[in-house]
């Protein structure tokens, strides 16, 4: 009986390791600083995590489908610059759909290369990271982009508005998370993403159009990037060319922290959301503890590596293993 209970706890730990880590982080930070669990602080963290979170939702599809997407950071810079520039030229009503169209065209291009031409996703998206950065600089001429009449545009509603007291970025993040979670876990398409990432050959032998599924995951990822760009542009109403720089790794960290396998075939939207929140709360907690932001880089990544190690150790049942 005692053995059974012990085993039960072990299994819960193995399955929900990340969730438990999340709770532990929260308690530690809360004990260290009362302000940490104030409602407005929590709401603030979620709001500032929303941009990263929205991108992570899309990348979750790509990763479960068995590929990587390292281009999302520079693609987000592109979306932000484009929508800000077009805002003053053709007005927000046209600028937004135009920006979505351009961003998703980039996603479609990557999807074509990785899905249909079967090129290695790491190389393709690493290349696109640079290429899209160049595209952004070309578009802006290297200048920061600002909306002329910041006070008089309704465009700020996405990044700064509130509905029934809840910040709009949180609503968009939550809404997208719910919709994409349903798509991934409940639709035939979602099932096929898992199959393609889990065993691409078996998927092909089951009549699943692998290339099209991979293509679609990149299209979804670029759609999410466009949403993130919209939030970013609307929040600051002005931007540098490098606003998304480095976010591709944070996004990937959130997805992996949530427990999606880099080899594809596993992960969920819910877990990714937890991963995003852990990242957000760690950074916020460190800030409240008074650590300089550059110390955060070190501590954040140490915590990520620690969490991933604990997760793997729980799955293996030991901390160290000769055979992976």
């Amino acid at each position: 009986m005692a053995e059974l209970t012990k085993r039960g706890i072990g299994e819960v730990l193995a399955k929900q390791g990340i969730l438990i880590a999340f709770v532990v982080f929260m308690i530690v930070f809360a004990l260290a600083n009362q302000r940490f669990i104030a409602i407005d602080n929590i709401s603030g963290v979620i709001r500032s995590s929303a941009i990263l979170g929205v991108m992570a939702l899309g990348v979750t599809f790509v990763v479960i489908g068995g590929n990587l997407d390292l281009s999302v950071g520079s693609m987000m810079s592109f979306s932000t610059i484009v929508v800000l520039d077009l805002h003053d030229k053709i007005g927000p009503t046209l600028a937004i759909p135009a920006m979505f169209g351009l961003t998703m065209a980039l996603g479609a291009f990557i999807g074509f290369l990785v899905g249909y031409l079967k090129l290695n996703s790491l190389i393709v998206t690493l290349g696109m990271l640079s290429a899209i950065h160049g595209l952004t600089l070309t578009w802006s001429g290297g200048q920061n982009m600002d909306i002329a009449d910041k006070a008089g545009t309704w465009f700020s509603v996405f990044g700064q508005g509130r509905v029934a007291g809840v910040p709009v970025p949180i609503l968009i993040f939550a809404g997208l998370a719910i919709v994409l979670s349903l798509v991934l876990s409940k639709t035939p398409f979602g099932r096929k993403v898992y199959a393609v990432g889990g065993n691409g050959k078996a998927a092909t032998f089951s009549g699943i159009p692998r290339a099209r599924i991979v293509f679609m995951t990149y299209l979804i990822s670029s759609f999410c990037v466009a949403c993130a760009g919209l939030l970013q542009a609307s929040r600051s109403l002005g931007s540098q060319n490098t606003v998304g720089q480095g976010m591709e790794l944070e996004v990937l960290a959130a997805v992996i922290l949530g427990g999606a396998s880099l080899l594809g075939g596993s992960g969920t939207i819910f877990k990714t959301v937890i991963g995003v929140l852990i990242l957000g709360f760690i950074q916020n907690g460190l800030l409240l503890m008074g650590l300089a932001f550059y110390v955060q880089y070190v501590v954040t990544w140490l915590i990520i590596i620690l969490a991933v190690w604990l997760d793997i150790a729980a799955k293996r049942g030991r901390f160290w293993s000769q055979i992976a």
């Binding site: 898992y194 199959a195 889990g198 078996a202 009549g207 075939g265």
Partner: peptide
């Protein structure tokens, strides 16, 4: 290698096509 997605459950594998 070709017949099954080993990490998926029995039902999902069977109904995949």
């Amino acid at each position: 290698g070709q017949g099954l997605v080993l990490g998926m459950n029995c039902r999902d594998n069977m109904t995949l096509p």
